[in-house]
Simulated scan of single mutants.
Amino acid sequence: MYTHQKNIITAGVPIETADKAIVFLHGRGATASDIINLNQHFKVDDAALFAPQATNHSWYPYSFMAPEKENQPSLNSALTLIQELVSEITTGGIPLSKIYFAGFSQGACLTLEYIARNAGQYGGAIAFTGGLIGETINRANYTGDFMQTPVFISTGNPDPHVPVSRVEESAGILKEMKADVQVKIYPGRVHTIGKEEIDLARKMVFHL
């Protein structure tokens, strides 16, 4: 078990002149540098980009569907790190309604878990293959109103790490919390990010 050191890669437009911010969350075994390069595909050119690096390249040690206590204190440390980053971005002059999140796999799960525990009107969120965290979903963890924040969730079926049933259950909770959720399931797709889902995310979340 571990807690996360603050190690954040930045790119894009300086926060002082940016119109929006995107927080990128990488998957298990990957790097902040890997995930921040997604913006080469999103092509959002007016955003300050931020990507925290997980200590030991993993946000939490076990499956996102393990009992939550088994993934502590790493999970809470990761959520706190994102909270601190979001606070720094808003202090820098970018409101929540202009902050976007994008994650893949473990980072997608963390994206959904963070926004559901801190619901509000964000710019949008993209979860490439992810769902809410826990052996079972603890609905009591999630309160607030997304005020129609666009959320895009995609996955393959079957996916070796993320069951479609968990994706659908997670989407249902976010919809109850007034998020504008779109789910896309790709039959037989391997654990990766495809061009079609990038294009859908650009259209739905960034309106490009």
Rank of each mutant, 00 (worst) to 15 (best):
Y2S: 10
V13M: 07
P14D: 15
A48V: 04
I15W: 04
N39W: 00
H57E: 09
K6H: 13
A18T: 03
H26M: 04
E68I: 15
D46Y: 11
I9A: 10
T17Q: 15
A66D: 10
H26Y: 05
Y60M: 05
Q5K: 15
A48R: 00
E70P: 06
T17D: 15
P61E: 04
K6F: 10
A66V: 03
H57V: 04
S58Y: 01
F64W: 06
D46R: 04
V13T: 10
S58L: 06
Q53D: 09
F64D: 02
E70F: 11
A47K: 02
T55S: 15
Q40T: 11
T31R: 14
F50W: 03
K43M: 13
F24L: 05
L49I: 01
A32M: 06
N7C: 11
D34G: 12
G12I: 03
L49C: 02
G29E: 06
I8P: 07
L75V: 01
Y62N: 15
E16R: 13
Y2H: 12
D46Q: 07
Y60S: 03
P52G: 10
P52C: 11
H26W: 00
N39V: 06
I22C: 05
N37H: 14
Q40S: 14
G29A: 11
I36L: 07
P67K: 06
Q40P: 03
S33F: 09
K69P: 08
I22Y: 03
V44P: 01
E16P: 11
P61Y: 03
L25H: 01
A66C: 10
N39Y: 03
E16M: 11
D45K: 14
D34M: 10
I22G: 02
Y2M: 11
D19R: 14
S33V: 13
L38S: 10
S63R: 10
G29Q: 07
Q53P: 07
G12R: 00
L49K: 00
F24K: 02
T31L: 14
P73Y: 06
A66I: 00
G12M: 04
L25C: 06
T10L: 05
A32N: 07
A11Y: 01
L38R: 05
V44G: 01
